[in-house]
Design a binder for these strands. Structure first.
Length: 790
DNA sequence: GCTTAGGTTTTG
């Protein structure tokens, strides 16, 4: 078997390689030497399409990256494979596979000057007695390598054309804010169609007509104000205006347009570039839109519908039924009750799809929506239980025959004017999460009331639910609109204590607990970011959060030590080395920790990195679950100095206590990796690595007054007081704003003492002995800033 | 490779 697949079992190849073979390093390959008993090992980083030579011989060229040469400038070599072996290899080899090539001939590489690879290439064929052993790279690893390469490569530089610079007959990339859209619908041709009108800072509008046979490859726009990035859209002139139309290779990303929400692209494309620069563009468009476009507030609820209007409804599908050829019935609910009697469309029981019990139980909360004509096909395909946004539903008032009572009808008329149509929202959509939670609370209330109430009483319960629901859109609105947001009260947990005057507290012995009513005269530090510290719960020490420069310095120092190739690709991680494309040609080594080999998701993967900069590490944290910076020693990988974070997850750097940590071998991570679905919790990682984790904490000094006296109380808070995790505030502008707003409300700058708001909170007193002097201190506890609306 | 639609409410 000249081409053989190997498995690695406990670090050894299975079947074992012939014992006479010796491994040869890339740098020892020189023309004219004898390589009969040598083999070369490398990772496939590129394979060209299989071809035939002039004489009909099969031919395959692949590129291997050596794994023994992490310092060398040239780290890859071309392998030319001839005859049947080329055919065999083409069938099994993929990027990321480890290849062992034995019985090769060495020849001068004619392309070395252009491709920058080794000056020689290896030639192999069955006739020459060569053998190739391939160790398959698990698919997930292959996927990770590609993700990794994409993140750290110099990404192709896309140029984006402003909407006022579009020219007829060009294919361009562009950004825009969605001013109007038709959700994808079935066209009269072969494809789905979606019409999208965009606008940007140039105030110029562009209507794009997008076609695709694949519903998924059209942009995932859910509301006006979303932001899109289109690649390779063709510009044409139509009726004297520029028009966009899908061209081959069209791709799109869609973002929520709300200022302050995470910039996460919605896309069906697995391979897309999205870097800091793109994030900045989206944020700029969001800010521009917020002050230049009027984007409507929260969507309507069934409890808010009026007859004779058009509205968009976010709802869940409970039942569906065919009515006739040109109309289709959708039974939906959103947890609120329509204030008018609504029509019921009679259908045959056997035509009605949906859970009978649920349909009956929710009969007073569901409404019948009739979808016509072109919407029928899409309506038919909807899954019961899915979450929908139905655009431009028409409510019509009509009287029942022979009766005076009128009812409201819900029509989704034919055609796509005004964006009329149906969109399926993914479960991950924030509005769906919100709706789901609400629906669950309604169902719960419903099932509880079912036991004790008659059906007549049930109806009145629904009415009261509907009243409660009316407040929800306001809450939604205010979460993101800061000028209307205010926290004006401080709530406490223990309701049994009554208020104590500050004078009384100052005259009492410690330790004790009190509830107080006081004003916040002043607080320290005034620069709020200075209030964030790192705390060790074991030795109770506090320290400043190291700044980013310190981390960079440590990384630079570590990068001097090259990665030790002996430590690459073990039983529990796979390693890849990468040379940066810039002048410095730095080596970066990534060790992907294996867990369940079936897992395909970078976002669940932990990796260790050697030789990266902090910028590269942050890039990796955006795509992978955890990043641990490490360095090589002779025998093992180890953590860096504990002045550097031992782990990065999301936007948070996790530090360990220098006094209390006793770092254990990195190998201990493999025990976590062996779990079926590791959660990679920072605390668990810290534990197996022997790290005593430091926790981010807010430390502040509040000077409180109440007319009877004043006292200084310390705030020591991980999350509870501000409802903001201290760990996240340093990397999140939005949270910083929120904290500043909270403090401005508790202690408005420039306000006289009389005009300050009253706060209620808990404080406890305690004694600190310093030498022979005893002093009483006060600390705020069990207190949360309440959010409310002015 | 070509078509589909090309925003501006149905008339059930």
């Amino acid at each position: 078997m000249p081409v053989q697949l190997l498995k690695i079992i406990k670090g050894k190849s299975e079947p074992p390689l012939p014992s006479h073979l010796q491994r040869e390093d890339l740098k020892h390959l020189h023309a004219g030497l004898d390589y009969t008993n040598k083999y070369f090992q490398g990772v496939v980083i590129l394979s060209y399409p299989q071809t035939k030579l002039g004489d009909g011989t099969d031919f395959l060229k692949i590129v291997l990256q050596g794994t023994y040469n992490s310092c060398a400038r040239i780290d890859s070599i071309n392998i030319l494979i001839y005859g049947k072996m080329a055919d065999d290899c083409a069938k099994v080899i993929r990027n990321g596979d480890t290849c062992i090539v034995a019985g090769f001939k060495l020849a001068k590489s004619p392309t070395a000057r252009e491709d920058g690879r080794h000056g020689c290439h290896l030639e192999v064929s069955e006739e020459a007695g060569s053998a190739i052993y391939v160790r398959g790279c698990p698919f997930f690893f292959y996927f990770l390598i590609n993700s990794f390469i994409k993140i750290l490569s110099v990404a192709p530089k896309y140029v984006y054309t402003p909407l006022n610079h579009l020219k007829d007959g060009t294919v361009v990339n562009l950004y825009g804010i969605v001013k109007f859209f038709k959700p994808p619908y079935v066209s009269k041709g072969t494809d789905y169609c979606s019409v999208v009108t965009l606008v940007d800072q140039s105030q110029v509008k562009l209507t794009c007509t997008l076609f695709s046979g694949n519903l998924d490859s059209l942009p995932k726009i859910y509301k006006i104000g979303d932001i899109v990035r289109f690649h390779r859209i063709k510009i044409r002139e139509y009726n004297g205006q520029m028009q966009g139309i899908t061209s081959s290779g069209f791709a799109s990303l869609t973002f929520d347009g709300t200022v302050g929400t995470p910039v996460v692209p919605r896309t069906s494309s697995k391979a897309y570039t999205f870097m800091d620069e793109e994030e900045k563009t989206v944020e700029e468009l969001r800010i521009w839109a917020a002050s230049n476009l009027s984007i409507s507030g929260p969507a309507a609820k069934l409890s808010g519908v009026r007859p004779m209007l058009f509205f968009d409804l976010t709802c869940q599908l409970v039942g569906k039924a065919k009515v006739d050829g040109s109309s289709f019935l959708l039974k939906v609910w959103d947890g609120t009750k329509c204030p008018y009697p609504t029509w019921r469309i009679p259908v045959e029981a056997r035509d009605l799809e949906g859970e009978k019990i649920l349909l009956h139980r929710l009969r007073n909360l569901t409404v019948d929506i009739l979808a016509y004509d072109n919407h029928v096909q899409l309506a038919k395909s909807l899954k019961i239980g899915s979450f929908l946004r139905i655009y431009s539903i028409h409510t019509k008032q009509a009287s029942d025959k022979n009766e005076d009572v009128s009812h409201v009808e819900f029509h989704l008329h034919g055609g796509t004017c005004y964006g009329r149509g149906i969109g399926v929202l993914p479960e991950s959509h924030p509005d769906v999460k919100e709706l789901k939670t609400f629906l669950e609370s309604v169902e719960l209330a419903d099932s509880q009331s079912m036991d004790s109430m008659s059906s007549l009483e049930l109806d009145s319960t629904y009415n009261s639910i509907a009243v409660a629901v009316l407040h929800i859109p306001n809450m939604l609105f205010n979460r993101y609109v800061w000028p209307f947001f205010c926290c004006f009260a401080v709530l406490t947990d223990h309701q049994d204590l009554s208020n104590t005057e500050l004078k009384t507290i100052r005259n009492s012995r410690a330790p004790q607990q009190y509830r107080i009513r006081a004003k916040l005269k002043t607080f320290k530090p005034q620069k709020l970011y200075q209030s964030v510290k790192l705390h060790c719960s074991k030795c109770n020490s506090l320290q400043e959060v190291p700044n980013g420069d310190a981390f960079d310095l440590i990384l630079q120092e570590c990068a001097v030590t090259p990665s030790n190739p002996e430590l690459h690709s073990t039983s529990w991680y796979e390693s890849v080395t990468w040379t940066t494309q810039d002048q410095k040609q730095r080596k970066i080594t990534i060790h992907f920790v294996k867990h369940d080999e079936m897992l395909l998701y970078p976002e669940d993967t932990l990796l260790m990195i050697e030789g990266g900069t902090s910028k590269e590490i942050w890039k990796l944290t955006r795509r992978f679950k955890c990043v641990i910076p490490v360095r090589s020693t002779e025998n093992d990988l180890e953590l860096l100095d504990l002045s550097a974070p031992f782990l990065l997850q999301g936007k948070v750097k996790y530090y360990g206590c220098k006094q209390c940590s006793t770092p254990k071998p990195i190998k201990n991570l493999s025990s976590l990796a062996a779990e079926p679905r590791p959660s990679w919790e920072p605390t668990e990682i810290a534990q197996v690595l022997g790290i005593e984790p430091l926790q981010y904490v807010f430390i502040m000094k509040f000077t409180l007054v109440d007319g009877t006296g004043a006292l200084n109380a310390y705030l020591f808070d991980y999350e509870k007081f501000f409802q903001i995790p201290a760990s996240e505030i340093l990397s999140n502008n939005f949270l910083q704003q929120k904290m500043q707003m909270t403090m401005n409300t508790l202690c408005p700058p420039g306000r006289k003492l009389d005009d300050l708001p009253w706060l209620e909170c808990f404080i406890k007193s305690y004694n600190i002995t310093d030498g022979n002097k005893q002093q009483v201190y006060y600390q705020i506890f069990d207190t949360t800033v309440a959010e409310d609306v002015v």
